[in-house]
């Protein structure tokens, strides 16, 4: 059934590849990862190739996204956090372009795959852990011991801090995944109503106007969500990376 709302998340193999019993096929998901990365890279590379002192419109877009992410990271993690700028910029651009690709009809949404968002979240948390321990050694564990807390409740607080730290990759990845998934399912369902209703004759066509309006409104909302989720992902990544740079609260 082509028009059920789940089919759009179906992964289909384009080039079957199997290594050591594991399936590493080049799928539609892989295709859209490549498309996302290629589009973003080409845009950033080509718009800045003239290195105009007075930027063209497209060059301004690249420069604005650069400064947008740079300010975001500097506000959250300070100047010391700027060493993570390439990572945060890559994450933001990748998620944003992948989300926007998902808004095209019949396109695959890479970020609606929990494994993709979870991998990106783990990348952030992994960076925090590795850099935190490498830079601060065991002092990094002060992250879990807030200063100024009475000794009586300290164990409790430490446990809560640890749980909150461990839940970060889950919340970070599920937030993005669920938003994209739910938005696309809603769009598909409402768009499906239009088709089903309009097949019922004159009254049905009249009634199909309602889901049509909903679909248009939700499409606009989804564009907003696409940007917002990329932004939220990047902001949270900045805040988590801040812990790696400044572990003491």
């Amino acid at each position: 059934m082509a028009d059920d709302p789940i089919t759009q998340f179906q992964i289909s193999k384009l080039v079957p590849i199997e290594i050591g019993g594991l399936d590493f096929s080049f799928t539609n998901s892989s295709l859209f990862m490549v498309a996302t990365v290629a589009t973003a890279s080409a845009f950033l590379y080509l718009t800045t190739s003239s290195r105009g002192l007075v930027p063209s419109r497209l060059q301004s877009v690249s420069e604005m996204s650069y400064e947008f992410v740079a300010n975001m990271l500097r506000d959250a993690a300070g100047t010391a956090g700027m060493k993570f700028f390439p990572l945060v910029f890559s994450l933001f651009t990748f998620v944003l372009v992948a989300n926007m690709f998902g808004m095209f009809p019949y396109f695959f949404t890479v970020t609606s795959q929990i494994i993709v968002t979870f991998a990106l979240a783990l990348l952030v948390i992994g960076t925090v852990l590795v850099y935190g321990f490498w830079k601060h050694g065991f002092k990094f564990l002060k992250l879990f011991v807030p200063s100024g807390v009475p000794a009586a409740v300290l164990p409790m607080v430490v446990i809560i801090e640890i749980i909150s730290f461990l839940s970060r990759p889950i919340s970070l990845s599920v937030r993005l995944f669920a938003n994209m998934l739910a938005g696309h399912i809603t769009l598909k369902v409402f768009a499906g109503f239009i088709v089903s209703l309009s097949s019922l004759g004159a009254i049905g066509i009249g009634g199909a106007i309602l889901p049509l309006i909903m679909t248009i409104a939700i499409t606009a909302l989804e564009f907003l969500v696409s940007f917002l989720q990329a932004y939220v992902f990047a902001v949270l990544a900045c805040m988590y990376l801040n812990d790696a740079v400044h572990p003491g609260h």
Partner: peptide, 19 residues
């Protein structure tokens, strides 16, 4: 589909390569 773990190795590999 998003919970189909048989697609995970491929997605992880290609995400690692592309990203």
């Amino acid at each position: 589909p998003p919970f189909d773990s048989s697609t995970y190795p491929s997605q992880l590999l290609w995400l690692a390569i592309t990203f």
